[in-house]
Design a protein around this nucleic acid. Structure first.
Length: 220
DNA sequence: ATCCCGAGGG
DNA sequence: CCCTCTGGAT
């Protein structure tokens, strides 16, 4: 669709990025956060639960979870074993339950029960690093402080030759240098959608990929 | 580098 | 069985 003129897979990433973004926007016009949530706290909790777990499974446990614990205060006062059982099917359930409760206790004690909206403050919460903080800032607050680098973004950035790094923070810096800031929130959703539907970890469907002609890793 | 941890796909 | 799923802390 988009004319790639003389672009080839070995062209500089900076030259391929505009075409990659344009094609992914066209392919996934509704790409957005797939975690069900109604407020920043729900998104924070859902994102903590999403570690090494599909968003689909997170969405399976959150309706009951948010009904039982409607506020940061409720999570803060929860019986830990009950909270563990409520999130059990998402894996890493002891760590996740403890982090959610400890984070909520700090949110109650230090932020009046409201999720903070700065990277610096979010990073002080237990169980929250740059990936989770970027999700909350971008999707709950519309703040493009950084770029979400999850397992999909990492895999696709490497396959597409947008970075040579394996460290997520270095990948984020490379992407920040390549992508205009107004696309920082969208690009992660686009790469995640494409990673799920086409560029899967185990068996990428290169024949059906709209980036095929621009991808250094494309299989014949 | 290692541990946490369940569930589904191939 | 082995790999993967919107990672983070030690």
């Amino acid at each position: 669709m988009t004319s790639a003129a003389n672009l080839t897979p070995d062209a500089p990433a900076a030259d391929r990025i505009p075409v990659i973004l344009e094609r992914l926007h066209q392919e996934y016009p509704d790409a957005r956060c797939a975690l069900h949530h109604e407020n920043p706290l729900q998104l924070l909790v859902a994102t903590i639960l999403s570690a090494q777990c599909t968003d689909e499974r997170v969405n399976q446990v959150t309706p009951e979870l948010f009904a039982r614990y409607p506020t940061a205060e409720a999570f803060a006062q929860a019986d830990l074993e009950e909270l563990e059982q409520a999130v059990r099917s998402t894996g890493f359930y002891r760590n996740k339950a403890r982090n959610i409760q400890q984070a909520c206790r700090r949110i109650v004690a230090e932020y009046g029960g409201q999720v903070p909206d700065t990277m610096e403050e979010l990073l002080t919460l237990p169980g929250v690093a740059r990936k989770t903080a970027n999700v909350v800032l971008g999707t709950a607050f519309g703040i493009a402080d950084g770029i979400v680098v999850d397992t999909h973004v990492k895999r696709l950035a490497n396959r597409l030759g947008l970075t040579q790094e394996s460290n997520p923070e270095k990948i984020e810096r490379d992407l920040q240098a390549l992508v205009p800031r107004e696309e920082w929130i969208d690009i992660s959703h686009l790469l995640i959608f494409h990673g799920r539907q086409v560029c899967s970890a185990r068996k990428p469907r290169c024949a059906a990929c709209v980036l095929n002609d621009l991808c250094p890793s494309a299989q014949v």
